[in-house]
Design a protein around this nucleic acid. Structure first.
Length: 595
RNA sequence: GGUUCGUUGGUGUAAUGGCUAACAUCUCAGAUUGUCGAUCUGAAGCUACGGGUUCGAUUCCCGUACGAACCGCCA
């Protein structure tokens, strides 16, 4: 046995016990005849005291940072206590020790405030994982997974594994593919999600399934995206949308309670996709703060979405008149923005990523007066009515963007989030959940010149709209039985009620421009299965990594993955991907045609 | 595919069209019997790569590589 205790558990009540610890040398502090060593393991840090009698032994077996050390000694009360660590009242008077392994000098310090940059820490991820801060993230991840599993288990869900070597599917993200040696010229694909398998499990009668499972998508990465990521994947039979929303609202609340100690008692708001787009410009609104979008003029019919249209037409202001959408947000308490600040905001919206031509603003001063960048076109009383219509209060800064519908809506959303961020409204320790529901079933793809599934091709239309699948002119109007759970402006989960009748599924494939033969070739197994008594079913999948990151107050999911990949999908520790031996290529009968 | 930013001792940062490239930390050696971000003394160690401008480039310009963030993309 290497140890009797861990480095985090000994207390003053253990005084005089003879114990053995094993761990890593955190720091060495030498004071002439005596030497202090902080010994670290996963559980904490305990101070070792090497007395004068061990000096010869220490000279023969010098210690260094990150050496693996076993030490036996007596728990003793410190004369100088350290209130900052749980074991701070005691130290170990070492009687004997053994260096179990040496360490070269690590490339960065293994401390909370390490001197290592991101790059280096990725390369030596196994060292970075020793750091307390990283360890806490990994522990949080485990706590989330444990809570989810506990909840689902107690709700009668079964964890069932599904294969990783599957068939490439046309819809959705790019597949990672794996060549098959035994079937030359043919490829497996890694699953983008276990979608079809969980539906088949429903057909098999396993009416409550879940899996914490890896998914693979070969797309470009971001701080919150990895080529392989983890989902909490769930599916239920004999349920309607309402059942699923309630079940998984419960799961997320349980996770909050278990992991963060937060009792999230209020019922989750349900917001239609249409309202989300209208009031937040975004299908995953951050509702921790207001600053909702106001449509001054839009393509939509209806007075309430064109509240300033008449005034705009009367003004002769070309920028607004030519725009598909003119939208505003009022930013609380920012009416005193200086020229420099408004110029800076204008530059911000003109960045290529936002892509607006300019920014119009109106300062609603505390004395009730209004000063705008378009005073030439609107007199003060008109601006006053504008302010009222935007529900601006004295002291607010009204920001207005105009242009093409889609881009402008997106820009307004970005601007709202940016101002929310600047004003400190996006607190990482405040959590606001909501459901976004009633998504459109289809989305028109300019690139492919056809409709594509907004969620995925197995999503059921609203039951009373299924007949619209027979009329191609109606595709754009069909609403889906699909839903997303949104946390602080992030989509953390999404799902749908599925199609479970063969004929509906065939219509769906046809709507997506797939021929009967193609549908049969790619999804014949599913269509076939639908003929053998498929139950009504639906499900949801949560982005596990992202959920962990948000609960941990971080923007980056990499911090919550033990061995993450970088921006370009490389594992810099392994140096993967890499070339393979000619022999392997030969076996696979693969030759390159590199461009 | 695109945009932006970055690359200076082991690590993290600073500065400069020219002189010994600075600071902190780490490392090594010495001192030190109560430290816990120990302290003190000393030592060692740096301008990513390729090209251009220039009398002279770490600095300015172009390219490459690598990293990061974002846009496109991600059912």
């Amino acid at each position: 046995m290497y140890r009797t205790h861990t480095c985090g558990e000994l207390r003053i009540t253990d005084k005089n016990k003879l114990i053995t610890l094993a761990g890593w040398v955190q720091t060495i502090r030498k004071f002439g005849a005596i030497t202090f060593v902080d010994l670290r393991d996963r559980y904490g840090i305990t101070q070792l005291l090497f007395g004068e009698s061990l000096n010869n032994l220490l000279d023969e077996n010098p210690l260094g940072r990150e050496f693996v050390l076993q030490a036996t000694g007596t728990v003793s009360e410190r004369s100088n206590k350290n209130p900052n660590i749980p074991t701070g009242e005691i130290e170990i008077i070492v009687s004997s020790f053994k260096v179990l392994n040496k360490s070269v000098v690590p490339p960065f310090t293994i401390q909370d405030d390490t001197d290592g940059g991101d790059d280096l820490r990725m390369k030596y991820r196994y060292l970075d994982l020793r750091r307390n801060i990283v360890k806490k993230n990994i522990e949080l991840r485990y706590a989330v997974s444990r809570a989810a599993r506990n909840y689902l288990h107690h709700q009668g869900f079964m964890d069932i594994e599904t294969p990783f070597l599957i068939k490439s599917t046309p819809e959705g993200a790019r597949d990672f593919v794996v060549p098959s040696r035994m079937n030359p010229g043919q490829f497996y694909a890694l699953p983008q999600s276990p979608q079809t398998f969980k539906q088949l499990l429903m057909i098999s009668g396993y009416d409550r399934y879940y899996q914490v499972v890896k998914c693979f998508r070969d797309e470009d990465l971001r701080a919150d995206r990895q080529p392989e990521f983890t989902q909490i994947d769930c599916e239920m039979s004999f349920v309607e949308q309402e059942d699923i929303l309630n079940t998984f609202e419960g799961m997320v609340k349980f996770i909050f309670k278990e992991v963060k100690g937060i009792e999230y008692t209020e019922k989750l708001e349900r917001m239609s996709w249409e309202d989300a787009m209208r009031y937040y410009g975004n299908d995953k609104p951050d509702i921790r703060f207001g600053m909702k979008l106001t449509e001054l003029k839009s393509n939509y019919s209806g007075e309430d979405r064109n509240i300033f249209k008449k005034e705009i037409e009367a003004s002769g202001f070309k920028v607004f008149n030519d725009a598909e959408l003119v939208g505003a947000i009022s930013v609380p308490g920012c009416c005193d923005y200086t020229r420099k600040q408004t110029d800076e905001l204008t530059e911000w919206v003109k960045r290529p990523q936002i892509g607006m031509a300019g920014l119009v603003f109106a300062k609603y001063h505390s004395d009730g007066s209004l000063k705008s960048s378009v005073d030439k076109f609107f007199d003060e009383s008109t601006l006053k009515s504008l302010a009222e219509k935007c529900q601006a209060k004295p002291g607010d800064l009204i920001l207005i963007l105009a242009g093409k519908e889609e881009r402008t809506r997106k820009a307004l959303s970005e601007l709202r989030l940016e101002m929310g961020e600047r004003l400190g409204f996006r607190k990482p320790d405040e959590f606001k959940l909501l459901w976004v529901v009633d998504f459109p079933l289809f989305e028109f793809s300019e690139e492919d010149n056809r409709y594509v599934a907004r969620h995925h091709p197995f999503t059921s239309p609203k039951p009373n709209e299924i007949h619209l699948l027979d009329d191609a002119s109606q595709y754009g109007t069909i609403k889906a039985n699909a839903y997303d759970m949104v946390l602080n402006g992030n989509e953390i989960g999404g799902g749908s009620i599925r199609i479970f009748q063969r004929d509906v599924q065939e219509k769906m494939f046809a709507a997506l421009g797939m021929s009967k033969e193609e549908a049969q070739h790619k999804f014949g197994f599913l269509l076939g299965a639908f003929e053998y008594g498929a139950p009504p079913h639906g499900g949801i999948a949560f982005g596990f990594d992202r959920l962990c990151a948000i609960l941990g107050g971080s923007e980056s999911i990499r911090d919550f993955i033990a061995f993450p990949k970088n921006n370009a999908g490389r594992d810099v520790m392994l140096d993967a991907p890499s070339t393979i031996d000619d022999k392997q290529l030969e076996e696979l009968q693969i030759r390159f045609n590199l461009k």
